[in-house]
Design a protein around this nucleic acid. Sequence first.
DNA 1: ACCCCAATGTATGCACTGATCACAATGTAG
DNA 2: CTACATTGTGATCAGTGCATACATTGGGGT
Lengths: 197, 197
Amino acid sequence: MTNRPYHHGDLRVALLARAEETLRERGASALSLRELAREVGVSPAAPSRHFKSKQALLDALALTGFERLAEAIAASQEGAGEAFADRLDAAARAYVGFAVANAALLDLMFSVKHSPQASEALGATAHRWSDQLLELIGDGQRRGEVREGPLERIALPVVAALHGYAGLTVSGVLPPEVAEYGLDDLIASILRGCAPQ
Amino acid sequence: MTNRPYHHGDLRVALLARAEETLRERGASALSLRELAREVGVSPAAPSRHFKSKQALLDALALTGFERLAEAIAASQEGAGEAFADRLDAAARAYVGFAVANAALLDLMFSVKHSPQASEALGATAHRWSDQLLELIGDGQRRGEVREGPLERIALPVVAALHGYAGLTVSGVLPPEVAEYGLDDLIASILRGCAPQ
DNA sequence: ACCCCAATGTATGCACTGATCACAATGTAG
DNA sequence: CTACATTGTGATCAGTGCATACATTGGGGT
């Protein structure tokens, strides 16, 4: 029938790639395993070999999201200056940039639903992300540009502010034009919030 | 057959009530119009008279969520002191309290998907909520306890921080025990962020 | 007081989905 | 080269959202 080989080669990554495309174009609710299989050119039951359930597919998607987010933030620190303000600025823009560029994916990443086992691997990767922020702030402390105190307690308001701003823009509460200068204000506010007393 | 009257009386509110219960107990993804109809004791097609689509039901749910959130925040201001710090503290606890008590609903309220027309009424109600925060901050300015400047630009970082913190706790990123003292730190940070220079 | 009609609920059917099963094709380790 | 684990197939099942045609109800206009 089909001249396609019986074995796809790397169905898993193909599914993930296509899924992310659909996710970006038509949102998470429009994601269907069967349609995915169709688009990749494979039988309806084939995806189940790689993702035992639809939720598993979504979890995997979220995980790649966290990985790429971590990469984006790490990359942002490359060209940034040494001052805490500069590095925070770069990280914040990387985070919000990722958020608006991957709105539906971000929704998935921080969705309430997590299979108990998936949340293990997922939580680990999520931590890797927050650790970047922690390190950033720790550096700021050592440079004397961030108030003293337990790292987590200083960091929490920072990531809350970033996360919230990203969420607001993504969910469309913030008009697009506000999202621009709004970020400047946010960063300034965060800096004041964790400046040495 | 059934001794139930042909007309339910107020199917719409019954559906919304049951839907919210299911939402709270089993999450948004477990919401099914048919099951809802079954539970309320009505034919599968009946709900369509009140909600032309499932998304419409979700929108209505989100809208009631915003209304109740606004009420909760308004109520929080009743017993609060006059100082800006007190009122912000009360509002923040009301917001986060609502968030953890209605996790799935909050997810819905700020979900990316909005039918173009629903987002009108929904956006209006959402604005009513943010207006409360704006007013709160405006009062603070008049009392000289909040830095001067355009209201929106002062307020944005504040709601971002609150919204982000709520989102983090709801999505389980924050361990429950952290969520307690974390809020204190957050409020303190916000206060520093918008204190007069 | 009546009747008509808009509102509301019902019955049925369609296309689709996610999940599971037995089975077929494939490549690889021994 | 053969046993076997991996991966893809095909069919089936329960369940879903939605649309359409029909039934029941109650209130407003005459």
